[in-house]
Simulated assay, not measured.
Amino acid sequence: MTKDLSRPTKITIHEVAAAAGVSIKTVSRVIRDEPKASEATRQAVRDAIKRLGYVPNAFASAMSSGVTPVVGLLSSGLSEPSILRVGYEYRMSLQSGAFDILQAAGFGLALVRLSESDQAHDFSGLIGRVRRREVGGFLITSPLCDRAGLVQALQAAKVPFATISSAAELHDGPSVVANDREAMCAMTRLILQFGHRRIGFIRGNAGWRDAEHRYAGYADAITGAGLPLDPALVFQGSFGFDAGRQGAQQLLALTPRPTAIIASSDDIAAGVLAVAHERGMSLPTDLSVTGYDDIDMARKLWPALTTIRQPVEQMAGEAARRLMALMRPVRHSEPAGPAQVELRSELVLRDSLTSAPG
């Protein structure tokens, strides 16, 4: 029988072990990211895997540990119009950041939408997914982590989970947040340095950690500069374009109107810019506008948006690492330090911010 040379020969773990000069068991340990191997040995195995093009069956390897190697990323049900069409890029960044870390460890990522049955008081539908081994644990983002009873139900059922952008007092398990308050305070101080004194602020969804911390940062900077915190300059909105439009219409109707408006998200800022353009304002000469998140749209707006870049991918990746430490503590040693980790955001200066007029 003639051998089919068109098909590539499948590299086996035996060949990797021979190329790296180690045992098959050691190769398996490195693939599974177990601690019983030196860094030099790990690197030799990784080099052999790369050189030979070996593709391990990561899913089967993870299943052998007795833990379902799939993490469920919770998303909201379609019945919540406030976030139905908002934040797609943010959610994609979360998915990408978590997926990269999980895939490298032989885990999969599943998007789990909270249905009406999942939202029962005991969240039995959600917990049932773990019992049926559809997923092994959950990543929960704001605002879902604030859903009444959710965290408590998962804790009672001993379901592993990690949260992203949750309040510090919500639970004592792994949680990753951004320094929203500090970052927004720094942005507001920068705007003050540009000479602005009437600075409007459009808030995100009431009660969400991100929104409350960003407003607190604005308030810190305003009061820290010895200025009154004028409620007329603050609009309670939500994280969306339409809220930005509504907030801009209200704030720009004031006499005197603000010379700068800080938006709690880039989507909100886009709504502000749209209203300003409709009013024939010269931007940023007549009005400076800033956002938060630095989604890709921010650089495409006119003028390009000064904003705050939130480390969304890193937040999701760190939360995934910490969740795996709960799910497989032998192979993924638990990170040292506090349960809640805070990552730093970065100010991004573009054309939408300039000195106050006059």
Rank of each mutant, 00 (worst) to 15 (best):
S282Y: 11
D267T: 08
I261F: 07
G280W: 03
R257Y: 05
A263S: 15
A253D: 10
S265M: 09
L254Y: 05
S288D: 12
T259E: 15
I262C: 11
A270F: 04
T255I: 04
A263H: 06
T255G: 02
A274P: 00
D267Y: 01
D267H: 07
T255K: 07
P258F: 13
R279I: 02
L287Y: 03
P256Q: 14
A269R: 03
S265E: 05
V275Q: 06
L283N: 05
L254S: 14
A269Q: 00
V275E: 13
L252T: 03
A276Q: 00
L287I: 05
S265F: 08
L283G: 05
T259H: 10
E278N: 06
A276P: 00
T285W: 01
T255A: 11
S282L: 09
D266H: 06
V275I: 15
R257S: 12
S265Q: 01
S282P: 01
A263Y: 09
I261C: 12
V272Q: 11
D286V: 12
A260Q: 12
I268E: 08
I261Q: 09
I268L: 05
V275K: 00
L283V: 08
A253E: 09
G271P: 08
D266C: 07
L252A: 03
L273D: 01
V272Y: 00
T285N: 14
A253F: 01
T259L: 10
I268Y: 08
L251W: 01
R257W: 01
P256T: 10
A274I: 04
S282E: 14
I261L: 14
T255W: 00
A263R: 14
I261M: 06
I262G: 09
L254I: 09
V272D: 03
L287M: 12
A276R: 02
D266N: 08
M281I: 02
A260D: 12
S282M: 11
A270M: 07
D286K: 13
L283M: 12
A269P: 04
R257Q: 15
A274S: 13
T259K: 10
P284N: 13
I262D: 06
L287T: 09
A270H: 10
S264Y: 07
A270K: 00
P256Y: 11
H277P: 00
I261A: 11
A253M: 09
G271A: 07
M281H: 05
T259A: 10
H277V: 02
L287S: 08
L273M: 02
V275P: 03
S264C: 14
T285E: 12
E278C: 01
I262E: 06
H277Y: 03
V272M: 04
E278Q: 15
A253I: 03
D267G: 02
A253V: 04
T259C: 08
S288Q: 08
E278G: 03
H277R: 15
T285V: 12
S264W: 10
E278K: 12
P258G: 15
G271S: 09
T259G: 14
T255N: 15
A253C: 10
A263I: 05
A270N: 02
T285P: 00
L251V: 02
P258L: 13
G280Q: 04
G271W: 06
T259Q: 13
M281K: 07
E278M: 04
A274Q: 11
V272N: 08
L273E: 05
D267I: 09
A270R: 09
G271V: 11
V272C: 07
P258W: 08
L283C: 13
A276C: 00
M281T: 07
M281L: 15
